[in-house]
Design a protein around this nucleic acid. Sequence first.
DNA 1: AATTTGACCGACCCATAAGTCGGTTATTTT
DNA 2: AAAATAACCGACTTATGGGTCGGTCAAATT
Lengths: 205, 205
Amino acid sequence: MEMTLKRRETMHRLCGKGLEIFNEKGYYNTSLDDILQELSLSKGAFYHHFKSKEDYFINIVQNLIVQKVYALLIEPLDTNENPLPVIVESLENALEPGKKNEMAYGFMLNDFLTEFNKRNEEISGYLKNILSVWEVNLVAVLKRGKVDGHIARHVDCEGAATYIIASYLGMRSLMTDSTNRQLKYQYIQQLKQYFKSISATHALA
Amino acid sequence: MEMTLKRRETMHRLCGKGLEIFNEKGYYNTSLDDILQELSLSKGAFYHHFKSKEDYFINIVQNLIVQKVYALLIEPLDTNENPLPVIVESLENALEPGKKNEMAYGFMLNDFLTEFNKRNEEISGYLKNILSVWEVNLVAVLKRGKVDGHIARHVDCEGAATYIIASYLGMRSLMTDSTNRQLKYQYIQQLKQYFKSISATHALA
DNA sequence: AATTTGACCGACCCATAAGTCGGTTATTTT
DNA sequence: AAAATAACCGACTTATGGGTCGGTCAAATT
């Protein structure tokens, strides 16, 4: 039992630091030694816990990344209010660089997706799966918005969800340095504009 | 003279095939030998013409990619019509996978930007520069649209341009296999919806 | 206390890929 | 035709980085 705790703790430290550095420098541009050095661990330690770099990253995806996406982008959708402002708020939040020197989690998806799309089908599959869950939830919440009279009846909820996701992912390519407040502000403003056009409120510029 | 021609022809072949394969597999995931083999050329030939892989890619960016972006995304904006349908058409066109087995040029920017953002500041600078030219032109054309009465006066043209670019770039992460007609259709539909909301036409669902 | 097992160490192996260099071949110049 | 130069060849060097393996040490089991 006690040994299992030690194991879990080390694995946890590895995953946390790994996500941090992969996110910062990219997966293929980060060597295991880069991570190991920061944690003062050895190759031997690493391979005692993970069977490969790939296995390691899958672990990170399925624990840390999934969790973050849920917390930031999916769970906030679970309310009974008008979905549009709720979506805006979740995106605004997800684009926020972490408080102190945390990561800007909202940014990871586009980067990792792009990196793995052409290189590793398995990992890219897991990542696309996360997106797909997000999409399903967006669609559901948009449809409910229709029923509740917040969203115009003519709206294609699947299309709207796709559009929301695309614009969110695309922001990453533009916001290079995390301090880019201006871009985020512009994005949120235009998103609201778009939302106005699909909402059911009876006209009013 | 004749030698210069030979040189230029070989460099041209190298750049063309290079872009094709880099676009397909990613820059860092493509070895020079991958390209050289397809052209039946040797390392020696390559380094006779380019001083490094980086130099080679910069060549590709500044010739081929710049040219394609201009042709697909910037030059079409140069009309006196209502800019919004013109923008829609250019994006629709840029997302179109090349006719026979050409490349889907519209896709390159997000991939390369993401790849180089964390790895090579110089190249990422060139790429961001291309985006920036596109943005400037979008803003200009949107502002003209305002003057000409096609776009509502309250619209923030810089914000709208950012939003258009972000959504376009983001589509790449979603459209993995090039045959994804559905996603493209959804995207264009929602873009039109958004455009309706910033246009000056006096209401009409 | 003796033994086993889990956590960890770090030198080593090996594949990959960028870049080098001393050549050969083809083309141009004189 | 001879000399010079450009285009090209491919074995080699070198650095990097994932993965291996025989070991050490400490904790847990007996």
